[in-house]
């Protein structure tokens, strides 16, 4: 996994690991915004075609905010891909599957079942198993 740390010295704000977290946080923010927007516009139209395409949701700022966050996460992700092997980056960014249920509970007041808690714990453990050697290498550098 040493290939993960062969990137040149970058300023802290361009650190690819920081951008993995940023990408995950922006996807989380995007999902919350899209959900808020979709809820607000759920009963705006009664046209089946417009309903199924989700076009009605474009009428709220929440959805545009969600799209902006999603684009931001894509830019962060492209930066990550420049420096970190795909199999490490893709698995680390799965931390978003922990952030999204937590954000759903905190901002949308959704219920997190014990089974979901167990799944979140396993994802966290998996991310920790992959990330720990990388953190050790960074500390030595």
């Amino acid at each position: 996994m040493s290939a993960a740390t062969t990137f040149p010295k970058l300023p802290w704000w361009l650190n690819p690991y920081l951008h993995i977290v940023l990408a995950a946080l922006q996807v989380t923010a995007s999902e919350v915004c899209l959900k808020l927007g979709a809820d607000q516009t759920a009963y705006v139209f009664h046209n089946p075609l417009l309903d199924s395409l989700g076009i009605a949701s474009l009428g709220t700022w929440w959805v545009w905010g969600g799209i902006l966050f999603y684009l931001g996460s894509f830019v962060s992700w492209l930066h990550v891909l420049r420096y970190i092997p795909l199999n490490i980056a893709f698995n680390l960014v799965n931390i978003e599957h922990v952030f999204i249920p937590l954000a759903s509970a905190f901002f949308l007041h959704e219920y997190i079942s014990p089974l979901r808690c167990a799944g979140i714990a396993l994802v966290l453990l998996g991310v920790w198993v992959i990330a720990k050697p990388l953190v050790n290498v960074e500390e030595k550098l």
Binding site: M1, N91, P101, V129
Partner: peptide, 17 residues
């Protein structure tokens, strides 16, 4: 180690979903 992490994440994702 990477395979182990991937397996944990996969099972975790399946449970969350």
């Amino acid at each position: 180690r990477l395979w182990g992490g991937i397996l944990l994440i996969s099972i975790g994702l399946a449970l969350v979903s």
